[in-house]
């Protein structure tokens, strides 16, 4: 039984069937850990993030890391070429990934990436939007919701004025960006379901 890890945060979707489940997880973990560390470093630089309690910083990062990674790695999903680039730099076609078991999540990732790229955000806008994405993550584990909400409001206000300044003739850009937040939440839910369904046999 061949197994596949259809996630661009791994080096390759092919899994060596001779390896133990534990070593497969270990290798996968080693491949996505640098990206997660970058998300944490990014979070530390968000003004106000370090003022949240340690518990709330961890909770937001736990809930929001996947959503941040989706935004940061949107360009790995090339809707024109219909390919996904994995960490090794190798591209895999949608058709190939489908035969490995990729389903609705892959379609939704392409759809999201294409719409986000179409907004042509500057690096500064993208960074501020990513900060908004992180502080807008699921709040179920948050202790001090008021502090997180205040931080979210400040960041959204800053994003709004930046986007309006840069795109004065495209008033819809800011609204389209905010509408990406529920899209990301739904991608996160689909991804969680896939993770929970993924079984590694020892």
């Amino acid at each position: 039984n061949r197994m596949h890890l259809v996630c661009p945060m791994s080096m390759s979707p092919y899994v060596d069937p001779r390896k133990s489940g534990h070593s497969i997880w270990l290798e996968f973990s080693m491949s996505f850990t640098p990206a997660v560390r970058e998300v944490v470093e990014f979070a530390k630089r968000i003004p106000g993030f370090r003022d949240l309690s340690q518990h709330d910083q961890v909770s937001l990062l736990k809930a929001g890391t996947f959503e941040v990674l989706v935004v940061r790695f949107a360009s790995l999903f090339d809707a024109k070429e219909r390919t996904v680039t994995f960490l090794s730099g190798k591209k895999y076609s949608v058709e190939a990934l489908r035969t490995m078991g990729a389903g609705d999540l892959l379609n939704s990732m392409f759809d999201f990436s294409q719409k986000l790229m179409a907004l042509n955000l500057t690096e500064e806008e993208m960074s501020l939007f990513t900060a908004v994405v992180l502080v807008s993550a699921d709040r179920s584990g948050i202790e001090n919701v008021n502090s997180v909400e205040a931080l979210q409001e400040t960041l959204i206000r800053a994003l709004r004025s930046l986007v309006l300044k840069n795109h004065p003739n495209e008033a819809a850009t800011f609204t389209k960006l905010l509408l990406k937040l529920p899209d990301l939440r739904s991608l996160n839910n689909m991804h969680s379901e896939q993770l929970l369904a993924f079984k590694v046999h020892p």
Binding site: R37, R50, Q54, Q57, V58, K62, S192, L196
Partner: peptide, 27 residues
């Protein structure tokens, strides 16, 4: 495992990456 983040060991990676931050704050 009912929590996908724990399943991936995400919390551990996050805590370790944040650690320097908390040490900075204590100094």
């Amino acid at each position: 495992v009912s929590d996908p983040a724990s399943n991936l060991g995400l919390e551990d990676i996050i805590r370790k990456a944040l650690m320097g931050n908390f040490e900075d704050k204590q100094e």
